[in-house]
């Protein structure tokens, strides 16, 4: 019952043999070894598995691997370019938005999806963008302030 899919992850092409019930989360974590994408449930309850598929933030645990055929996927590992952190990652560090770190990759990917779509956003839009990402450590305060620092930067630029 194996099926072959082709997908582009962080700019690199992969051909993967999948089972029908495999999720994108399993493809990324287990077949490609991209464990920066987390898993905290199986049903879109926590958001720690968030990745970007063709510009849209999705729960990779609820996204069938078969649906990923031919798609462009960005994961947290794709944000570091030439050894440099992405401005979103820098903002999370500078604002103290990271604690245990388990929700962090998902939070950053949801932020990226928002930022890619809209360079200047309101605090309410920031909160809406991460409403599907649970954090048990931070109270979201410093995450939102990291996000808003990016909104300001883009409005200035």
């Amino acid at each position: 019952m194996k099926k072959t899919i082709r997908l582009t992850v962080n700019g690199e092409d992969y051909t993967v043999s999948i089972e029908p019930f495999d999720t994108l989360n399993k493809v990324l974590r287990e077949y490609l070894g991209l464990t920066g994408t987390k898993k905290g449930c199986d049903y879109g309850g926590c958001g720690s598995c968030t990745v970007i598929v063709d510009g849209r933030a999705v729960y990779s645990c609820m996204f069938w691997a078969g649906q990923a055929d031919g798609r462009k996927i960005t994961t947290i590992e794709g944000l570091v370019k030439n050894g440099e952190l992405d401005p979103i990652q820098e903002a999370f560090i500078q604002h103290g938005a990271v604690q245990c770190g388990y929700c962090t990759p998902g939070m950053i990917m949801s932020t990226k999806a928002l930022l890619d779509k809209k360079s200047n956003f309101t605090e309410m839009e920031a909160r809406e963008a991460i409403a599907g990402n649970l954090c048990r450590c931070t109270g979201y305060v410093k995450i939102v302030s990291a996000m808003m620092s990016l909104a300001k930067k883009s409005s200035e630029g």
Binding site: T35, G36, T37, E77, Q89, V98, G101, Y102, P105
Partner: peptide, 16 residues
Amino acid sequence: IPRVDAKSKVSGRAVY
């Protein structure tokens, strides 16, 4: 000071 574990956590390199 920035957290010493922050870089590994924001980049998905921290191992759980």
